[in-house]
């Protein structure tokens, strides 16, 4: 009796490990396969059945990539875009999050609900009007114009507000009594205390901006101004290289910052996802 129970338990553990490992393989193998192939010649990478050891080992793909003058520009543009978005959201959403969480002013909750309601509107609805607005501002084909659209996101404001609500009210009260007005309190007390939440906002906004496609596709026009996702899909569709391996190498270069960031911060990021989901 007892030994059969033990046996089924062992069976379960074996099954669990098998299933989890199988899926780990499924999720990881495209990355591994691409990584290996990026050091192969296209001739070898497209051989069937697939080969796993680059022979000859070549950096040709990466060299081709950087020989194309556009590619470093795309990296720069993506970094600039992500930097603007991260900076804007850190600054503006923390200010607004604090005001919505801790200050009293008429219409506060109604306004905040109105901002949250915006999350229901699909981006495709506002795409054309925003294109026209940015066009009128003369900011089409301009990273700054593109960044303006998501400089102060509602989700980051929401996250900051939740964070400030979770801090004890007494600290804010103490600052008021010690002689800080609301804005001074923000700079002296809120910002230093909000480091963890600001970090979360920064990481999420970075991932979002670095990976963004639709916005850059619509608002950027000339190849010199593209970001990596738009640039790579452009390179693919124009068949800039006769071989596919440079595209793979380019994809890996483009994915590298997000992957490195994720692996470095995985515990923290996964927790953040969980907190976000918890609000639902």
């Amino acid at each position: 009796m007892r030994s059969s129970l033990k046996l089924t338990k062992l069976g379960w553990i074996a099954l669990t490990c098998f299933v989890l490992s199988l899926f780990a393989f499924i999720y990881l193998s495209p990355f591994i396969r691409s990584f290996v192939a990026s050091f192969m010649t296209w001739e070898q990478a497209s051989r069937y059945p697939p080969e796993w050891i680059p022979d000859p080992f070549t950096l040709e793909n990466y060299m081709k990539l950087f020989k194309l003058e556009l590619f470093p520009r795309w990296i720069f543009n993506t970094a600039l875009y992500a930097g603007l978005i991260v900076a804007g959201n850190i600054m503006f959403s923390s200010m607004a999050g604090y005001a919505f969480a801790r200050l009293k002013f008429p219409g506060r909750d109604a306004l905040f609900s109105a901002l949250l309601a915006l999350l229901m509107i699909p981006i495709f609805v506002t795409l054309v009007p925003n294109y026209i607005i940015i066009y009128r501002l003369g900011l089409i084909d301009n990273i700054a114009g593109l960044a303006l659209l998501s400089l102060a996101n509602v989700p980051s404001t929401f996250l900051m507000r939740q964070y400030f609500l979770s801090l004890p009210q007494e600290v804010f009260d103490a600052a008021r009594i010690d002689g800080c007005g609301p804005i001074k309190t923000f700079f002296y007390i809120c910002l230093p205390l909000a480091k963890p939440a600001l970090g979360a906002v920064a990481v999420y906004q970075f991932l979002g901006a670095w990976n963004a496609f639709l916005g850059p596709l619509v608002f950027l026009r000339t190849p010199e101004n593209f970001t990596l996702p738009v640039g790579l899909s452009f390179a693919f569709q124009r068949s800039m290289w006769t071989e596919y391996t440079p595209i793979i190498a380019g994809s890996l270069v483009a994915a590298a910052p997000t992957i490195v960031l994720f692996i470095a911060l995985n515990k923290y990021l996964i927790k953040g996802i969980v907190i976000q989901a918890g609000k639902g």
């Binding site: 200010m95 200050l103 008429p106 506060r108 901002l115 400089l151 404001t157 609301p182």
Partner: peptide, 28 residues
């Protein structure tokens, strides 16, 4: 005073989202 400073703090988020969110949706 509190209300005024609060308005300053929320101004950027509110303006941007009113323009690129609500105004754009209405315009669509």
């Amino acid at each position: 005073r509190e209300a005024l400073e609060a308005l300053i703090l929320i101004s950027v988020v509110t303006c941007l989202n009113m323009v690129f969110g609500y105004f754009a949706a209405a315009f669509a």
